[in-house]
């Protein structure tokens, strides 16, 4: 496998895509939104339980490519216990990580495990796969009815 493919499909990403964490509906959720990229066929639903402005639980379900699924899975782990403001910070940091050449700024330094997605930057058409769960999550926070798309 070439270097940038190895960067894209890192072990952690493959592991999350094959065994997504927090996969399934979240019956007690009070926020929810759908994301759909019809061109590639990625479709996910993000469920959140937000209590006193803090994310108490997150889950997702749907069908997508490895990048989309792993991104959703790792996102659900990263968000628990975060305030809405912190979630917004992570969203911006993640977005910068996968889209900007010089993403080594203060925001992305807080991303922790999520920084494995830096390899997506070399695959511009896959950026929409990695960001779909995050945009859907943001829409869920607002309980947005219309499905989100990143295409």
């Amino acid at each position: 496998m070439s270097g940038d493919l190895r960067e894209l499909y890192q072990e952690v990403i493959l592991d999350h895509s094959k065994r997504p964490r927090n996969f399934g509906a979240l019956p007690q959720s009070n926020r929810r939104a759908e994301g759909y990229n019809p061109l590639c066929g990625d479709r996910i639903t993000v469920y959140m339980l937000v209590e006193d402005g803090v994310v108490a639980a997150v889950a997702f379900e749907g069908a997508g490519c490895a990048i989309c699924t792993a991104s959703a899975s790792m996102m659900t782990q990263a968000l628990v216990g975060k305030t809405e403001a912190e979630v917004e910070g992570l969203f911006r940091g993640f977005h910068a990580l996968v889209t900007e050449e010089t993403a080594l700024n203060a925001d992305t330094s807080k991303l922790g495990k999520l920084s494995v997605f830096a390899g997506v930057r070399e695959f511009p058409i896959r950026v929409k796969c990695a960001t779909l769960p995050w945009h859907t999550m943001r829409a869920a926070l607002e309980n947005q009815a219309a499905p989100v798309t990143t295409e």
């Binding site: 496998m1 066929g41 069908a63 490895a66 896959r126």
Partner: peptide, 9 residues
């Protein structure tokens, strides 16, 4: 395996 991943590889 999602077709998109097939296409990229």
């Amino acid at each position: 395996i999602h077709p998109h991943d097939i296409g990229t590889i």
